[in-house]
Simulated scan of single mutants.
Amino acid sequence: MKIFRADYVFPVNADPIRNGAIVVSDDGKIISVAEDIPPDYANIPVEQLSGIICPGFINTHCHVELSHLKGKINDGEGLISFIQNIQLHRNSTQQEIEDAALAADQAMYDNGIVAVGDISNSDVTIGLKSKSKLYYHTFVEAFAFVPQQADEVFNKALRLLNQFKPQPCSITPHAPYSVSKELFRLLKKYSDGNKNLLSIHNQECEDENKFFRYKLGQFNDLYAHFGIDISFFKPQARNSLQSVLPLLSSKQDILLVHNTCTNLKDIYFIKRFEHKIHWCFCPNANIYIEGTLPKIDLFIDQGFNITLGTDSLASNYKLCILSEMATLQKHFPSLSLDRLLEWGTINGAKFLGIDKEKGTIAYGKTPGLNLITGLDNLKITAETKVRRLI
């Protein structure tokens, strides 16, 4: 048994406890969380800590297999250039890719992350995930914008999905601009008949909406760069999210990732449907790629589940949910610590379907425990740090 006491304990599912104490078993299971230590455990030494204790973080969007691209792609050049550079640099030796992925996995563990929603396009991380201390749900990504490639790409993704099993995994579309209607329909049919959590990149730049509305902008240059004939594509007269939402299954939980250029009309459009929508913000990646952030205020109190992600080391300097929270706190000072912790813990656990074990400090759960120090009146600052306790 261990007992931790701190200035505050943030269980997340209950009010913060001033000078709270947590009794935890050797296997990480919460025995008690309260202001007082139960009499049965009065003889156990108490580790007194300065700062706050919160549950382990949930990273709902990452690309561990791209970790070898750290520092290889310049920041601030926009999404189109970023996509081109990903394809240019992503091929490397198997050993380099595996070593970088393993280092990223350890870094997330050290940064207090306990579970990850991870995008995969290959089998390179299967072994890593089978041995990791972290919980992983792998999203096997399918993308092909040319209609004639839909069957081939879908079947290839299914084969990769079967390689990841029995690990938690599902098959998912990459983004509106990289998935044809034909491929969307195959994915929808599969999702309607199978347990299949979905995660899709959404509205990462203004040109994505411009392409879907008018068939204008830099995406035309991107398809030309890759030699893709898009003569079949007709402007949709609506934003990308509004164009593809009806093509997604309403039977599965769906994570919309980035949402950099999502507007209020898009949010209201979603409410007309019965889809189970969750949002994921990766603010440091948004700044790295596009130099801008989503309009966070639009999403608050709209009735949707909001989560946080890190994206990959190709588009971020580190894989740390506290760092994402710090960026949001800096740019949106009205965000409370309580709300940011919800986004970084229980909300992600709910999306991944692991909220019975992770996300809150509650009896019987194994959420992991983080110590956060360097807060200023319960506000995250540049000096705020996280240390994993268990």
Rank of each mutant, 00 (worst) to 15 (best):
P16A: 13
P16N: 10
I17D: 04
I17K: 07
D26S: 12
D27M: 02
K29Y: 04
I30G: 01
I30E: 06
I31H: 03
V33L: 02
E35L: 09
D36F: 05
I37Y: 04
P39W: 01
D40G: 02
Y41Q: 03
P45M: 04
V46C: 02
E47T: 15
I52A: 13
I53W: 11
F57T: 08
F57P: 02
F57H: 09
I58L: 08
N59C: 08
H61M: 00
H61K: 02
H61W: 01
S67I: 14
H68D: 08
L69V: 12
L69G: 03
G71D: 01
K72V: 05
N74C: 05
G76P: 00
G78Q: 05
I83Y: 12
Q84A: 08
Q87A: 03
L88C: 10
H89C: 01
N91W: 03
I97K: 15
E98Y: 09
L102C: 01
L102W: 00
Q106D: 07
G112N: 08
G112R: 10
I113T: 11
V114Y: 04
V116A: 03
I119D: 13
D123E: 15
G127A: 12
K133Q: 15
H137W: 05
H137M: 10
H137Y: 12
V140S: 08
Q148N: 06
Q149R: 06
Q149S: 14
E152N: 10
V153A: 09
K156C: 01
R159G: 10
R159I: 02
R159W: 00
F164Y: 15
P166T: 08
I171G: 05
K189Y: 03
D192C: 01
L198F: 08
S199G: 02
N202Y: 05
Q203D: 04
Q203F: 00
E204K: 08
E204I: 03
C205N: 13
E206W: 06
E206L: 15
D207K: 09
E208D: 14
F211M: 09
F211H: 07
F212L: 11
G217V: 03
G227N: 02
I230T: 15
F232S: 07
P235D: 05
A237L: 10
S240H: 08
S243W: 04
L248F: 03
K251H: 12
D253R: 13
H258D: 08
C261Y: 15
T262N: 00
K265M: 14
D266P: 02
D266L: 13
I267S: 08
Y268E: 12
Y268F: 09
F269C: 06
F269V: 11
F269P: 14
F269H: 12
F273I: 00
F273L: 12
P283F: 00
A285D: 04
N286D: 12
Y288D: 03
E290K: 11
E290V: 09
P294D: 13
D297F: 05
D297T: 13
T310Q: 09
T310H: 10
T310P: 01
A314H: 02
N316K: 15
N316R: 14
L319E: 11
S323G: 07
E324W: 03
M325L: 12
L328Y: 00
Q329G: 12
P333A: 14
S334K: 13
K350S: 01
L352N: 06
D355H: 11
E357S: 15
G359Y: 02
T360C: 15
A362L: 15
K365D: 12
P367V: 14
G368N: 14
L375S: 10
L378Y: 02
T381R: 12
E383A: 11
R387F: 07
L389A: 11
